[in-house]
Simulated scan of single mutants.
Amino acid sequence: MSRFDQQPTDKLFKALESASPQDELPATATLLDAVRFNADGLLPAIAQQHDTQEVLMMAWMNREALEETLNTHRVCYYSRSRKKLWRKGESSGQQQHLKSAALDCDGDTLLLQVEQTGPACHTGRRSCFYLSLTHEHATINSEPLINPDELYGKQ
């Protein structure tokens, strides 16, 4: 049993601020009990290519999606529009395989290190972050790798 196991879930992330890599931490299930899901039961998850550190996308996870991702290493999100689990690549074939997952210091955002197969974005681009902004104008910073019609079929 770790010194953190006695912490109430609402104080666990505060207590972990003083933790070191040598400390024994609570079980993952205990940490997930303390995660600060929003009012809809969702957590923002940022996917980053593990070897290049390229930020690929941001999506939402509920606890079920997060647990499935941790168990299977195939990234699963929660689709707010469809109101169901969304296994990345289930319609496009462009899967994400989990390399590692990390919670932020407040327990309210997740960073996923992934191996991305092909484009991460539904537009066919490698990253969803292809619209660059300045104070005066916007530019497109990348071309699609694959035409979205080829990824998803004609809509």
Rank of each mutant, 00 (worst) to 15 (best):
L151Y: 09
L151A: 13
E115F: 06
G118I: 00
L133D: 06
H135W: 00
R126P: 00
L133F: 14
E136L: 15
Q116S: 12
L112K: 07
H122N: 08
Y152F: 15
P119T: 12
Q113P: 03
V114C: 06
L145Y: 04
G124D: 01
L131N: 03
A120I: 03
E136Q: 15
T109V: 11
T123N: 08
T117V: 15
H137L: 09
R125E: 02
A138I: 13
E150N: 12
T139L: 10
I146Y: 01
S142K: 13
C121P: 01
F129R: 04
T123W: 04
L145M: 15
L112M: 10
P119I: 08
T139I: 08
S142T: 13
C128P: 04
Y152W: 08
L110N: 06
P148H: 10
R126S: 11
P148M: 09
Q113Y: 06
Q113W: 10
K154M: 07
N141K: 00
Y152H: 10
Y130I: 05
K154L: 07
Y130S: 14
H122M: 05
H122L: 07
Y152M: 12
L145E: 15
S127C: 00
L145D: 12
P148L: 11
D149H: 09
Q116L: 14
G153C: 03
E150I: 13
R125S: 03
H135P: 01
C121N: 01
G153W: 08
V114Q: 06
D149T: 10
L112Y: 07
Y130G: 02
F129I: 02
G124A: 00
V114W: 09
E136K: 15
N141S: 04
L145V: 11
S142L: 04
G153D: 06
P148G: 11
E136P: 03
R125V: 03
S127Y: 01
T117N: 14
G153T: 09
E143C: 00
D149K: 11
S132D: 10
N141M: 00
E143A: 12
